[in-house]
């Protein structure tokens, strides 16, 4: 596929319509709309239970591609099965794509994801990461960042930090499976869709993790979905990079990161995070960024 150079190159064809019950301004919905521009209608999407499960709500669907509602535990296994079945039927050109939340990816469905990646199944696994169990009311997942409030990590007198755990380094984990692994952002659609285009042509497993800004859970005005997504990249909360054959490639390099405070103050989930919490989060970000800079263009995992 030819690489897109600017927004103007992105196809004008959509395989996604309005009318879903997702929140106004929903980041993960936008991610799927964009992805389908590259994937096209000859695609089977396997979705683990989560917010996106409510997109096709009988008798209507916003999708112009096929969709399988799957359990949280095994979207990757279903995808591998679909891939093998299609190949046997001579349908090798059909795309098999998982669209799964972070809870399904990092936690509940991790065993099946790991197995499919280790076997290098020819599927594209997109994790839309809203950094929580969003659909059930914003509970903590192992993708939740340090300092975020969630339903199960409330901020209070005894624990002013909210979430005190540091999120899993999922990119490194997937990179260590020796598959293609990349992060992506809604605010950088050209980068996201080029990564997807490359994944589509790969003869093996691809993992793309899209930060899915969530207006309801992150608690911000829906108009800010893109601004917040962009700040996440600019302040190093969500660096854009890819790992292939264990080698690291930093896609967006900056001479200086913006302070994380700018990102935090736009969202209710970080409201009242005390200064020492902000400091610790900034230190975690700086550490990760320094690591990415150090290993850029080198063996990383």
């Amino acid at each position: 596929m030819q690489e897109f150079k600017s927004l103007k190159d992105i196809p004008e064809q959509d395989y996604f319509t309005g009318g879903s019950s997702a929140c106004a301004g929903c980041g993960p919905s936008l991610g799927l709309k964009l992805a389908l521009k590259v994937l096209g209608p000859e695609t089977i999407i396997i979705n683990s239970a989560g917010c996106m499960t409510l997109l096709p709500l009988y008798p209507n669907t916003p999708l112009k591609a096929s969709w399988i509602h799957n359990a949280i535990e095994n979207a990757a296994s279903t995808a591998a099965g679909a891939r093998h079945g299609l190949d046997v039927l001579g349908n090798g050109d059909m795309n098999v794509v998982v669209y799964a939340g972070d809870g399904a990816t990092y936690d509940i469905g991790f065993a099946s994801l790991s197995a499919a990646a280790a076997k290098n199944e020819r599927i594209i696994y997109i994790c839309y990461n809203n950094q929580s169990y969003g659909n059930t009311g914003f509970q903590w997942s192992t993708a939740t960042p340090y300092g975020s409030e969630t339903k199960t990590t409330p901020r209070g007198k005894e624990n002013p930090t909210g979430n005190t755990a540091v999120n899993k380094d999922m990119l490194k984990i997937m990179g260590a499976h020796r598959v293609y692994a990349a992060t992506a952002s809604l605010a950088y659609p050209v980068d996201f869709l080029n990564k997807l285009g490359r994944a589509k042509e790969r003869d093996g497993f691809s993992y793309i993790e899209l930060l899915g800004a969530c207006t309801a859970g992150w608690n911000y005005d829906p108009r800010l979905t893109i601004k917040i997504s962009k700040l996440a990249v600019r302040c190093g909360m969500w660096p854009l990079y890819e790992i292939e054959h264990g080698m690291l490639n930093l896609n967006k390099d900056f001479s200086e990161l913006k302070p994380v405070d700018e990102f935090l103050k736009m969202q209710g989930r970080y409201r009242a995070l005390p200064p020492d919490g902000v400091e610790r989060l900034q230190a975690l970000i700086n550490e990760h960024w320094a690591e990415l800079k150090e290993y850029n263009k080198q063996r990383y995992v």
Binding site: F16, G18, G19, S20, P41, P56, N60, T61, P62, K64
Partner: peptide
């Protein structure tokens, strides 16, 4: 089984 692709387009939001 939903047989009409993109049928949600007619839903008024």
């Amino acid at each position: 089984v939903i047989r009409e692709p993109g049928s949600a387009a007619k839903v008024n939001r």
